[in-house]
Design a protein around this nucleic acid. Structure first.
Lengths: 187, 187
DNA sequence: GTCTATATCAGGATAGAC
DNA sequence: GTCTATCCTGATATAGAC
């Protein structure tokens, strides 16, 4: 059911979600949807939670894999995670982009979003810190903010058809280079 | 009338545009709106054209001003243009973000969007070329793609309340630094 | 060109049976 | 828990007078 919701949102966006379509996708009646979730808003909340969990799950898997990688590889893998053409990742990226875009008009969403963003930024800052232990916390945080914001920017370009996936990956890798060089120079 | 439409879209987004609200904002009846534009879609088309024209207009003004600036200043001004808290800029940034986000679900929008993006990227690449005449065209284009994508990413974070305006400007300036350092190192 | 209705419709939500 | 049927609201769009 939540998988179905994620699929429908990935297809038409948060604001294009039709309860009826979701019901069809899940193979149940609309009434049942309302039995499980209080209302449209509830569907959205639950689905976004689900998507977050799923993202965390594959982030965790990633970290498990990464035991064999060096810090640089780990950093790249974290940031390139969103640039894969699997349905799951596409759904998550799409939903995240929608959440971000919706928050421009729906202040209620902002708090959760800001919190999730902060966690992500700190995660990346920490990885950067492993590569440049002597860099200041401020410089690390700023580099992490730029890199994660770039992920969002490139991701939306990719999903909106302005940028091929492979090219997005290249650009991202080189941005990481540029930031590491910069952190190095400040030493 | 189109100004009113731009305001309403900035408030509720493309997908939140209500013809009735637009009518109220413009101080006329809904019927009159439909008299001028065929339908909702027509309103959207006309408004987005209007917004594009306006953006071009203030970009041109910027270039006129910039005669006194060095290439570095011109580059900064171009990229920081979107980070100002004036209603006009906010409206344009919001509309652009909406357009980008909508294109994820509406393939018809993609072509125009890709074209506009390309023009922007080339503009920035050219400015970068002035600062690093010996850098390869490929390296310049990639730096421009990263910088413009970062503008979009930071802009959405700003508009969605995850990032204070001043901080966005700082991050952007330093990203420019990082890219210039990188271009320099490749010489 | 502009207004006051009003038709029409889509989609969210619920009642009540099973 | 799940369905069928239906209500109700809000929004697009049009008719027809001025």
């Amino acid at each position: 059911m939540l998988e179905a919701a994620a699929r429908v949102i990935a297809r038409h966006g948060v604001r294009g979600l039709r309860v009826e379509e979701l019901a069809a996708e899940a193979g149940v009646s609309t009434a049942l949807i309302y039995y499980h979730f209080k209302n449209r808003q509830g569907i959205l909340r639950a689905t976004l939670d689900f998507i977050n969990d799923r993202a965390e799950r594959y982030t965790t898997d990633r970290v498990a894999d990464a035991s064999s990688l060096d810090a640089r590889g780990e950093l790249e893998q974290t940031l390139l995670l969103e640039f894969q053409d699997s349905p799951e990742v596409r759904e998550n990226s799409t939903a995240w982009g929608e959440l971000r875009a919706s928050a421009v008009f729906e202040p209620e969403l902002r708090k959760d979003l800001a919190r999730a963003t902060l966690v992500w930024v700190q995660d990346v800052a920490e990885l950067l810190g492993k590569l440049h232990p002597v860099a200041g916390a401020g410089a690390l945080a700023q580099a992490a903010e730029r890199l994660t914001a770039l992920v969002e920017g490139l991701s939306t370009r990719w999903l909106s058809g302005s940028l091929p996936l492979a090219h997005a990956r290249t650009l991202m890798k080189e941005a990481i280079d540029a930031e590491l060089v910069r952190l190095g120079n400040q030493r």
